[in-house]
Design a protein around this nucleic acid. Sequence first.
DNA 1: TATTTTGCCTGACTTTAGTCAAGTAGTTTA
DNA 2: TAAACTACTTGACTAAAGTCAGGCAAAATA
Lengths: 291, 291
Amino acid sequence: MLDAIDRLRRFNRAVTREVGALDHSYLGRGRPLGAARVLQLITPQGTDIADIRAKLALDSGLLSRLLRALEAEALIQLATDPIDRRRRTAQLTPAGQTEMAAYEAIGYARAAETLARAGSRPQALIDAMDLIATTLLGDQIEIRDADASDPAAIACLDAYYQLLTEKIPSLSRDMLTLPLTDPEAYRPPHGGFLIAWSDDLPIGTVSLRPLDKTTAEVKRLWVDPSARGQGLARRLMHTVESRAKTLGYSQLKLDTNAALTEAIALYRRDGWQDIPAYTSFPATLWLGKTL
Amino acid sequence: MLDAIDRLRRFNRAVTREVGALDHSYLGRGRPLGAARVLQLITPQGTDIADIRAKLALDSGLLSRLLRALEAEALIQLATDPIDRRRRTAQLTPAGQTEMAAYEAIGYARAAETLARAGSRPQALIDAMDLIATTLLGDQIEIRDADASDPAAIACLDAYYQLLTEKIPSLSRDMLTLPLTDPEAYRPPHGGFLIAWSDDLPIGTVSLRPLDKTTAEVKRLWVDPSARGQGLARRLMHTVESRAKTLGYSQLKLDTNAALTEAIALYRRDGWQDIPAYTSFPATLWLGKTL
DNA sequence: TATTTTGCCTGACTTTAGTCAAGTAGTTTA
DNA sequence: TAAACTACTTGACTAAAGTCAGGCAAAATA
């Protein structure tokens, strides 16, 4: 344990140096860091300045001045919120969008540089970073509704299919179609498609589709390897169950394969019971739950 | 590749937040961050202030003032170096040591907190952090001389033996003695023991002992898993070879086991040739090199 | 409708970090 | 031994970040 803490502190030192260098690289555009950070949070569509203040934990006086400086550079436009005229929103001007693109380019260049330092094993570095990012951002994983034909949804399903073909040897990838042939089934008011986000990266999914008036089916539960061991699968299941209840279902079903042992253990811990088979291969196990 | 960069940038954001919180936690002792950082580099035995300046990349004027502030708090004592009376050293007073201990406690507490967030897989988190720290600090891995009875040397050998018993099934741990029974053989002027350090954590080792007047044996090459794929093993071998040359040897030998395929590939790439067996189990392959 | 609260702005301030040039004492080199 | 160089200190300065107390309009509440 002592050793673990020493290692973690070495990590902190290494990363502090790296983050310092990263911050410093944003200075090349002739703008202090505070202003650059504020600018990065403003979208072309307009951002509530209260949100910026909350995210960066800035004093309202300080933020007010930073915004005024950016406005003087003609990078942003300030407007009062028509609904609550005390509130203000900031919006990127075309010049501001150009400037933002320059910052983006700096970020990408530095990231590529770090990646190049990984030597012969870049994938190992990325996996390690994913694990750490997911752990550190663990407290703010957000589950949001999505559409089954959304690019993020497709990416999740692709990763899920990848996992399935690895775990179930007799299953070949061309048996699984993507995008889904029936996206309509996963849309309100009868179905749902949930994605778990960690800082705008999709790391988990689960979906729901109708079987009959009172029964829905839970489909395609998947959690990114970097996010496992933190209870995200259970959070997704609980969310989809309460969603099913909201949509008026009283009964849930799912099918799975005996090879997916962790998932099955989770279902059983959460009160899912064996039911008769209602689908075929690759399913080898069928479970149901009354809401 | 684009995806990899997005993932890396998510990592940067996660870690920036973390580092910010870490820095902020050091503020609780009523001292600005700069002063706290300087204090952490001063030892009870005395630290050359030029070293501090180099490590923190501080302006000499600024450091001078920070030191004066710490001196005014009676946390440190400044003295002139008796050898070169232009140089100065800073030394922790008893009060300073107490203060340092408080900072240490803060660091440990925060580290333990982060570790606790890893959920059910703390070891995976530590491994990921090691990989990243080693990658980021890769440019400043230092190879230094050590003694075979040094705790760091023992830790390296312990990890090396662990690896051996994993790779060679017929080898049991109690066949390997630690500490070494002949530490004298690995000391100058006839032998050597090298350790590779990444920010004060030992991550690799190799050693050299005499066989006869003109021949030495290279023993126990080991590199921490987090540091593999960056050419450290080769650096260690080159260092030990030039050390052997300095000590006056003209011939090198080593024994290894066929299970250690990466190491063997490295030896062969570097010009080591098969030689007759000169040791027994667990060795199954014997190599030599003329300097 | 009067009062309180909220969201933001402004002005006056402080602290921290950092730069630069000049100066002093000691050391090295020609 | 003089000149050049080095390690550090001091003073005078700037930029950036942050704090705090009003103030004003709009919104929420009594």
